[in-house]
């Protein structure tokens, strides 16, 4: 998981702030090179450390960086695959929310040694949810929150999503058909 998030932070910073800032971050973090390989292994905790360095260099709070990375993963056209995999969760945003508990299991089917976060979703009231995320990565709840914000847009739902303390993300669905959902075809467009 560290490797995937490191690569995500790398792509997010490169696409949003440019190569020079990314190099500054890697230098400040004492990294030997500017590239993280998503399929290799990195020491646990490195992803959080790089994000903290990125926060210092970019002058933004680290939680905002993680949320932006989550949103970036879903919305960036280069990562269309991530959006598609999440959309397999269901036909509506609430279907999708409920499917999040299944997501780690599905992810492990494809990458058995992934070590994804543990996700628990509770329905705490009508259209109100609490998502608990347990992960070795400190930034993980924020990444999920950022992804959820982007996925709500994707489904055309108007939501209030907040990541609070204790790895809990609260979700209030204000209008599940606020706007038109983005099209999703089960068949992979590339084939």
């Amino acid at each position: 998981m560290d490797a995937l998030l490191l690569r995500s932070v790398q792509n997010y910073v490169l696409d949003t702030f440019g190569e020079a800032r990314w190099k500054d971050i890697c230098d400040a973090a004492g990294q030997p090179g500017p590239t993280f390989e998503p399929m290799l292994r990195y020491p646990p905790g490195l992803a959080d450390r790089i994000a903290e360095t990125a926060a210092e260099v970019l002058g933004r709070p680290v939680h905002a960086i993680w949320e932006d990375v989550g949103t970036y993963l879903v919305t960036s056209p280069a990562h269309e695959g991530v959006r598609r995999l999440l959309r397999f969760g269901g036909v509506s945003f609430s279907d999708f929310l409920h499917s999040l508990e299944e997501l780690p299991g599905r992810a492990r089917l494809a990458l058995p040694d992934l070590d994804p976060p543990e996700i628990l979703l509770s329905e705490v009231g009508p259209d109100r949810f609490e998502l608990r995320c347990r992960s070795k990565l400190k930034g993980m709840p924020r990444v999920l929150a950022g992804m959820l914000m982007a996925m709500a847009d994707d489904y055309g739902a108007l939501c209030l999503i907040e990541a609070g303390k204790d790895e809990v993300v609260t979700i209030s669905v204000l209008d599940s058909r606020h706007s038109r959902a983005r099209a999703f075809d089960l068949a992979f467009p590339g084939r």
Partner: peptide, 14 residues
């Protein structure tokens, strides 16, 4: 079926 589709796409991404 959706698991299979999910897996097919996830694997091809990997």
């Amino acid at each position: 079926a959706t698991e299979v589709l999910f897996l097919a796409e996830a694997t091809s991404a990997v």
